[in-house]
Simulated assay, not measured.
Amino acid sequence: MRRHRPVPIGSWTVIAAVITVLAGCVATAPGTTAATLTRIGDFGANPGGIEMHLYVPAGVAARPGVLVVMHGCNGRAADFHRRTEFASLADEHGFVVVYPQGNKSANGLTNCFDVWSDEALRHGGGGDPGSIVSMVDYVVRRHGGDPARVFATGFSSGAMQTVNLLATYPDVFQAGAAFAGVPFGCLGPPGCSDRSPREWGDLVRDAHPGHQGPRPRLMTWHGTVDDVLEFGLLEKQVEQWTDVHGVSPTPTSTTTPAPGWTLRRYGSGQVEAYTVTDAGHDLPHPGMAAHAIHFFGLDRK
Rank of each mutant, 00 (worst) to 15 (best):
M1Y: 11
R5N: 05
G10L: 13
S11V: 04
A17D: 14
V18I: 04
L22W: 02
L22S: 11
L22K: 00
G24Y: 08
V26E: 07
T28N: 11
A29N: 13
A34V: 08
T36L: 03
T38K: 08
I40H: 01
G41Q: 10
D42W: 01
A45R: 11
P47V: 01
G49D: 13
I50D: 01
Y55L: 08
V56H: 03
A61N: 15
P64T: 08
G65Q: 07
V69W: 05
N74F: 02
N74T: 13
R76H: 11
R76Q: 07
A78W: 06
R82V: 01
T84H: 02
T84C: 03
E85G: 02
F86W: 12
S88C: 09
D91T: 04
V97D: 06
V98E: 06
P100E: 10
P100H: 10
Q101F: 09
N103S: 15
K104E: 12
A106L: 15
L109F: 00
F113S: 00
S117R: 05
D118R: 14
E119I: 02
R122W: 13
G126F: 12
G127P: 07
P129V: 02
S131Y: 02
S131M: 06
M135R: 07
D137T: 13
D137Q: 15
Y138E: 11
H143L: 04
H143D: 02
G144N: 13
P147M: 08
A148F: 12
R149A: 06
T153I: 05
T153Y: 08
G154V: 01
G158Y: 01
A159K: 04
Q161S: 06
V163M: 04
L166V: 12
A167N: 08
D171H: 12
A177L: 00
F179N: 01
P183M: 04
L187W: 02
P189Q: 10
G191D: 04
S193N: 09
P197L: 05
R198N: 06
W200T: 00
G201L: 07
R205L: 14
A207V: 12
P209C: 08
H211S: 11
Q212V: 14
Q212S: 15
G213N: 12
P214Y: 09
P216I: 01
R217C: 05
T220S: 14
G223V: 07
T224C: 07
V225C: 03
L233Q: 09
L234Y: 05
L234Q: 11
K236T: 01
V238K: 03
V238R: 00
V238Y: 03
E239M: 06
V247K: 02
L263R: 15
R265C: 01
G267M: 10
S268C: 04
G269V: 12
G269I: 07
V271N: 07
V271D: 03
V276W: 00
T277N: 11
D278R: 13
A279V: 07
L283C: 01
P286E: 05
P286G: 03
G287Q: 05
M288I: 00
A290H: 00
I293R: 00
I293D: 00
G297W: 09
L298F: 08
L298M: 09
K301E: 15
